[in-house]
C-alpha cells in the first residue's frame, strides 16, 4: 500500500504556532491552580482580617522586595535572550539564559533563609509555636508556606527547563529559525514571575 512513487522534497513539518498555543493552554491550567489558591487566600483574609495583618507584619519585607527585583530582572534576561536568538546571536542568547538560571538560584537561596528564619521561630505548620497561633494567623502561615512553596517548586522546574534550553541552544537545535522551545521556556518563566507579582503584595504588603 505504501509505495511512495512521488518523491517530495523532504521538508519536516514543524509547527511552532501549535507548540506555542499548547504552551498557553498549559499556562491556563497553572493560572487555575494558583487562582484557586488565591481565592482561598481572599476568603480567609476576608474572614480574618486582623490576623492576616499581624501575620504579614512578621514577614521580611526587604527579602520579599529583593526577591521581586530578582525575578523581574530574570524575566528581562529571558526576554533579551529571545531578542538575541532572533537576531542570530546564539552565544549571547545562551549566556543570558545562564544568567537567568543564576537569578533563579539566588531567588531560592533567599527563600531558603527566609523560610529558615520562620522555621526557627516555630512558625512552620505543626510546630509548637504554630499551634499557639490564633486560628486566623495559623491560616495565614499555612497559606504562606503552601503558596510560596508551590511557587518555589515552579522556580526549580523553570530553572531546569531553562537549563535544557541552554543545552539546546549550545547544540544548535534552538537557533535563529527555530526558537520556539526558548519562547515556550520564556513563557513559563514569565508566568512564574507574574504569580510572584501577585504573591508579593498579598503576603508582604497587606495592611
Amino acid at each position: 500500500m505504501s509505495t511512495p512513487s512521488i518523491t517530495h522534497e523532504h521538508s519536516e513539518h514543524f509547527d511552532a504556532y501549535g507548540k506555542k498555543l499548547g504552551m498557553w493552554l498549559f499556562l491556563f491550567t497553572e493560572v487555575l491552580l494558583f487562582g484557586g489558591l488565591f481565592i482561598v487566600y481572599a476568603t480567609y483574609r476576608f474572614l480574618n482580617h486582623d490576623a492576616f495583618h499581624q501575620g504579614s507584619a512578621e514577614l521580611n519585607l526587604v527579602v520579599g522586595a529583593i526577591n521581586t527585583a530578582i525575578l523581574l530582572t530574570s524575566s528581562l534576561t529571558v526576554a533579551l535572550s529571545i531578542t538575541a536568538i532572533q537576531k542570530g546571536d546564539s552565544k549571547k542568547a545562551f549566556n543570558l539564559i545562564i544568567i537567568t538560571i543564576i537569578f533563579a538560584l539566588a531567588f531560592l537561596v533567599n527563600k531558603y533563609f527566609e523560610w529558615y528564619a520562620k522555621y526557627e521561630h516555630g512558625l512552620f505548620p505543626g510546630m509548637e509555636h504554630f499551634k499557639e497561633l490564633s486560628h486566623g494567623e495559623s491560616q495565614f502561615f499555612f497559606l504562606y508556606f503552601f503558596m510560596t512553596g508551590l511557587h518555589a517548586i515552579h522556580v526549580i522546574v523553570g530553572a531546569v527547563l531553562l537549563g535544557v534550553i541552554a543545552y539546546l541552544i549550545k547544540k544548535g537545535t534552538v537557533n535563529k529559525d527555530r526558537y520556539i522551545y526558548l519562547e515556550n521556556g520564556g513563557l513559563y518563566w514569565h508566568l512564574v514571575d507574574v504569580i510572584w507579582i501577585y504573591l508579593f503584595p498579598l503576603f508582604y504588603l497587606i495592611i
Binding site: D15, Y17, T68, A69, L76, R178, E183, F200
Partner: peptide, 27 residues
C-alpha cells in the same frame, strides 16, 4: 526568518525600558 514564527523582534533597549517600568511599579 522561519514562517512558523510571527517574527516580531522586541529591541534590547525596549525590553530594558519595560524592566525599568516594572521596577518603578514595584517601588
Amino acid at each position: 526568518m522561519s514562517e512558523d514564527h510571527n517574527g516580531h523582534v522586541v529591541d534590547y533597549k525596549f525590553n530594558i525600558l519595560v524592566w525599568i517600568d516594572l521596577l518603578i511599579f514595584t517601588i
